[in-house]
């Protein structure tokens, strides 16, 4: 197992370096002079030169790249020139909001999705199974910004149960939870669709195994076969769902934050784009890459721990 962990860790490093490299060079491909873009067309020659020096743009790209890698290894994402602030601080300020939202969304998705998936698999090809499957297909077809707008219209505007702008005071727990409900629901409903589908197909696969037939042949009651024998094994692939759909999850959290006007990494991306703050954009992409690689690593390791076949390898 230790060997497996080390191997997985070593595999994650080159991917991270490569993603960071890709982000760095794509950002450098921006047309025009970043200093000019930041200061506008009316900037004087002196201020352009001094900003270029401040940004390190007067040095060769390869030197800039080396320094960028080095500072990232030290955990420093650099400074936002527009906001005159360390990018680390800017991101750390809003990160809890995004983490809270994502956790709540995934939790909601799994809690509601799993029973539906099990139900759908057990009553396979029934009308209820059919409706669940079509429903989950509609769910995962929903663009997160559209479902967000519909939720906002229904629950905030017409029913007035929730505020239209979710910018909670983090110290006020009641307000925090109240403002989390709708965005988390938006993320959770789409996540639920993925959970329903993967738990259904995983359970269907296990239900077809020989040991299930054996358990049934022994005369065990149906629900014991289902919960003790089938579901336990079917849950293993479901654990990887977060890792598998982390891309969808990240994309949807960005859109959810924008629609609900909720602080977080996604909202930050939008302002980085508006302000043409390429340093901040670059920092955000690096953070996202870290989060994704980390989540993949954790799901792989959990999978390894739960599944004896991988553990023993």
């Amino acid at each position: 197992m230790l060997q497996y962990i080390i191997k997985r860790l070593l595999l994650a490093i080159p991917i991270l370096v490569a993603v960071v490299t890709l982000v760095f060079f794509v950002v450098r491909m921006a047309p025009g002079d970043p200093a000019q873009v930041m200061l506008g067309d009316s900037a004087s020659q002196e201020s352009l030169i001094s900003l270029r020096a401040e940004l390190g743009l007067d040095r060769p790209v390869i030197v800039q790249y080396g320094e960028f890698l080095l500072s990232i290894m030290k955990g420093d994402l650099g400074d936002s020139i527009i906001r005159k602030q360390s990018i680390n601080t800017i991101i750390a300020d809003v990160l809890p909001y995004t983490i809270e939202l994502t956790f709540a969304g995934v939790l909601l998705g799994v809690i509601i999705g799993l029973p539906f998936g099990v139900f759908s698999a057990v009553y396979r090809n029934s009308v209820a199974d059919y409706i669940t499957r079509i429903g989950s297909l509609i769910g995962l077809s929903f663009p997160a910004f559209y479902s967000g707008i519909l939720l906002l219209l229904a629950f905030s505007v017409y029913l007035g149960w929730f505020p239209v702008v979710s910018d909670p005071d983090m110290d006020n727990l009641g307000e925090r939870l109240h403002m989390l409900v709708l965005p988390a629901m938006n993320l959770g409903l789409i996540m639920m669709a993925y959970v329903v589908r993967s738990s259904r197909s995983a359970l269907l696969e296990t239900l077809g195994e020989d040991y299930i037939r054996t358990a049934k042949a022994k005369g065990l009651p149906g629900f014991i076969v289902l919960y003790k024998h089938a579901l336990k094994n079917a849950l293993i692939p479901v654990i990887t769902i977060v890792g598998l759909y982390i891309g969808v999850l990240v994309g949807n959290s960005v859109l959810t934050e924008i629609v609900f006007n909720r602080p977080g990494l996604g909202k930050l991306i939008l302002s980085a784009l508006d302000e043409r703050d390429y340093n901040l954009l670059q920092g955000l992409m690096v953070i996202y890459a870290f989060i994704i690689v980390l989540v993949n690593l954790v799901t792989d390791l959990t999978y390894g721990m739960v599944d004896p076949r991988i553990r023993k390898q």
Partner: peptide, 12 residues
């Protein structure tokens, strides 16, 4: 593959 489609779109 480790970059989500939406983020890649955003960046590029």
């Amino acid at each position: 593959m480790s970059i989500p489609t939406l983020l890649m779109g955003l960046l590029i």
